[in-house]
Write a protein that binds this DNA or RNA. Sequence first.
DNA 1: ATTTTGTTTTTTATCTACAATAAACATTTT
DNA 2: AAAATGTTTATTGTAGATAAAAAACAAAAT
Lengths: 299, 299
Amino acid sequence: MARQNTVFKEAYNRYAAALRRDTALPSEPEIAAQLGVSRSTARAILTRLSEEGIIRWNKRQKIVLRQPTDHDLFPSEETDSLHDIIERSFMQRILADDAAPGMQINELELAREIGTGTTSVREFLIRFSRFGLIEKRPNSHWTLKGFTREFALELADVREMFELHSAAEFGRLPRDNQSWADLAAIRDEHHAMLDDINQRFKDFSVLDERFHLLIHRASKNRFIADFYDAIAIVFHYHYQWNKTAARARNERAIHEHLDYIAALESGDQAAIEIACRAHLHSARQTLLQSLPQIATETV
Amino acid sequence: MARQNTVFKEAYNRYAAALRRDTALPSEPEIAAQLGVSRSTARAILTRLSEEGIIRWNKRQKIVLRQPTDHDLFPSEETDSLHDIIERSFMQRILADDAAPGMQINELELAREIGTGTTSVREFLIRFSRFGLIEKRPNSHWTLKGFTREFALELADVREMFELHSAAEFGRLPRDNQSWADLAAIRDEHHAMLDDINQRFKDFSVLDERFHLLIHRASKNRFIADFYDAIAIVFHYHYQWNKTAARARNERAIHEHLDYIAALESGDQAAIEIACRAHLHSARQTLLQSLPQIATETV
DNA sequence: ATTTTGTTTTTTATCTACAATAAACATTTT
DNA sequence: AAAATGTTTATTGTAGATAAAAAACAAAAT
């Protein structure tokens, strides 16, 4: 098989789940735009919906005959893109306790384990290499540099440089900029989460990512944005595996965020820098504390 | 053909060129280490040298019978790695005047033009994408973002943050660190170049790269180092295509470097920051002035 | 005239195969 | 015993093939 039709299946599930009986569906280009796929794929979805008797389709006329059931949808294993499957599988591997820094990474072995071709694994590793966790020796194997103390410190240093820059830029945005409204909304969400912290502390990482992304977008710098993408992915997986003291850690971070937001809203550059530094300092401590002990011993 | 033996050919040329008649050659592992290849490749080289009658080879005995001539070497087209070929070809394309920002990049077309397979081109583009000059839409084509004013400004901003950081770190290096000796050597080379500026101004870019690389290495940060790699490649090709006012530009830069080096050697952090900022400011102007006019109009 | 549908073409994503290269293992020589 | 050579195996780098998805083109409907 040359390529899995996961785009089709995922979009089909998404579209089918939103269908309501007796409604009429819009034009093909509109469906395609709604789903973020090409019209070819949208037509494939309509074709299948029609074949399954879920809609009656005749040129412009597209009527929903019945509500699709769970049985009509593709199972979730078939809708994940190959890239996501490889990413998940690989991150599990390198965050596992037995993944020691300096370890070799074998493309063929990885591919077999994941059940995919070597090309996809290669391309994934090339993309992933910009996160600084793996390194390649030409004509030879990849090496796992690992989630070490050095990695965490280097990451934190760059993060601090970038975030101080972005926060300062944010403070200079004109008051009618959309970002201020977004910031206010995020501030309110912080308060809401704090009111119910015992139940909701696990949702913090999503909010955290949104908050910092908003700050970084103010800098309008592709290198900063790309770097934050890298951070977000690394953190996303890392904190799934390291949940120690999550509640206390998150509660403290929320308070720091609120101080930081207040400073931004004040527009006072000195206050912004102080609040930003304070938060980044404790974020650095959190990161260092969460390091897997085995990986702390470097190569 | 599945793979070109460019590693072998390039190493063969390198080794053959260094042979002297009647000398005895070292062991296979030693030859391999000297050339930076595996013993298998080293043996392939010895085999060919033997077949060509350049050496007499019998187990440990390896005697050079005759000096290899240019005729014995592989032509230079056959020794370039595929990656380098693709890189050169691609950079030529995107720096050509008709390469407008927003342009689509077609993998198959590129591959055919270069005379290679699509896989290699894909992998090159993925690697190259971290430089921020191209961008991919999933399941669709790559887009050339181009050498625009925005690109130059974003690059310069990050460069400034990183270099100020690295320069400060450099200033803190203990005086017995090797980097101080390297810096002194580079300082002398600047003086030498200045004495013969009319003849040698073209060699400045190599010196410039070595100087900044030395500074950045002091930060011991993989993200900073990677970013400087990107800068170096972009500049390397960019200035090959834009040679306007190179002499004046380079002469000014040499003076700035010398001030910068003097500040570093003084160990005075405030002086370092001032000299670093001054140089980065004029480097930014140089970069902006060298933008191709067509690419300045953004998408 | 513009939008929608129908049809064909182009391009990407992925697999498989295979030569080049590296690495491992076995034997010989010092 | 250690290092070198001889031989075999494992792994990477690259081409080529093919289905999925996007894009382009053509015809029909508003």
